[in-house]
Amino acid sequence: MNDSPLLSAEGLHITFPGRRGAPEARAVDGVDLDIAPGEIVALVGESGCGKTTLARSLLGLVKPTEGAVSFDGSPLRYEGRALKAYRKRVQLVLQDPSGSLNPRHTVYEAVAEGLRIHGYAGDERAKVTEALSRAGLRPPERFFLRYPHELSGGQRQRVVIAGALVLDPELIVADEPVASLDASVRGEILALLLGLRAELGLSALVVTHDLGLAWNIADRVAVMYLGRIVETGSVEEVLTSPRHPYTQALLSVLPEAGGEPVVLAGEPPDPTRIPSGCRFHARCQVLASGEAERAGVADACRGEDLAVLGGTGATRVACHWATASGR
């Protein structure tokens, strides 16, 4: 795997105006993130933490308020022709295949749509056949004239993946790619994504709330909370030795965790009112238990902001307590 990033976000901020004079919502509040060629990165966090907004920005669908996105060493430009060329190289796979497939279009039309949008001049039928085959729908010709309602959930997700593959992208952004599927099918789709990485050298950003999924598919994990990445590193390091209390809480509810699950107090804060200090401190079990006080960092937790973590593969954590205790 090449260490030079294929996709890179630097100092990314995305804000949305508040309603009726309310403060603006800081959906993404300072993020650095790199994805290397052939690397699978899992972006993990609760609903509302900003991970989907960050993913949409990396796709060029949301222009950042501050910061920049680069692809293959060149800044992402938001003009029509440049953006169209970029979206051919970076493709989106959505969570709900039923919602992303037009019920009036056959499988062939759904997969060929991207080729037609981008003015492909070659053999359309051959490209659609190849994409369906790579997505595991074989023999592909059997599926050409079928409609989404005639397919299983797993087959529909494979059609969505084929629609992304038909343009020969270098990176796929998969937003909760198996969340709507039965447990028996989830493993098949994850195995497919891993196989595509091995066969085609595809990179992927997998957006998920499920740390178990991250463990099964990712090389690296970035844990996001309230608009910022709070812990990042190789999937083995982060998920076997989590340092941030938020990561520890997310992992504690997995069946294989073994111990008592950590129940976090309350809901994540409103992104229009991000708290001072560590943005997790109001829900932090380490602060609530007195451990942060004993480590001499309780005041810092409540009042001192933490630096934005670097986007590379190095293991990093944004936590006063973890840093002070040498965790």
Rank of each mutant, 00 (worst) to 15 (best):
A85F: 08
D29Q: 10
I229V: 15
D34C: 05
R125N: 10
G154V: 00
H13F: 15
A249Y: 05
L193Q: 03
A110N: 08
A183W: 09
P275H: 06
A112R: 02
V317T: 14
I14C: 11
V160N: 14
P255F: 05
N2V: 05
A36T: 02
D123S: 03
H320C: 02
C49T: 07
L213T: 03
L192P: 01
F143L: 07
A25T: 06
F280P: 13
A22H: 11
T15C: 13
A191E: 13
C284P: 12
Y225G: 06
G67M: 03
D210G: 02
G154I: 00
G67T: 11
A25S: 14
G212M: 12
M1P: 13
G122V: 01
G277L: 01
I274K: 14
W215D: 13
A265T: 12
D123C: 03
G45C: 07
E113Q: 15
G277Y: 07
A112V: 01
A164M: 04
V128I: 00
G73F: 06
P17R: 15
R26N: 02
L76H: 08
E237R: 04
R294C: 13
T232Q: 15
D29C: 09
L194K: 01
G38I: 00
F71W: 12
V317P: 02
P148G: 08
H105I: 00
G296F: 04
L193D: 10
T315F: 07
V238K: 07
R87D: 00
A198H: 08
L76T: 09
R134N: 01
C284T: 11
N216S: 15
R302I: 01
A298P: 14
G195P: 00
V253D: 14
D219H: 14
V173I: 08
G114R: 07
P242E: 14
G296N: 08
R220I: 01
E24K: 14
L59R: 12
A9Y: 11
A249E: 12
G310E: 14
V128H: 09
G310T: 03
Q155W: 07
V160C: 15
G311S: 08
L194F: 04
E130I: 00
A322P: 03
P139N: 10
P75H: 04
D32K: 01
T312D: 15
A179P: 03
G122Y: 04
A121E: 05
R104L: 14
A249Q: 05
E267H: 13
F143E: 03
L309T: 05
R302C: 00
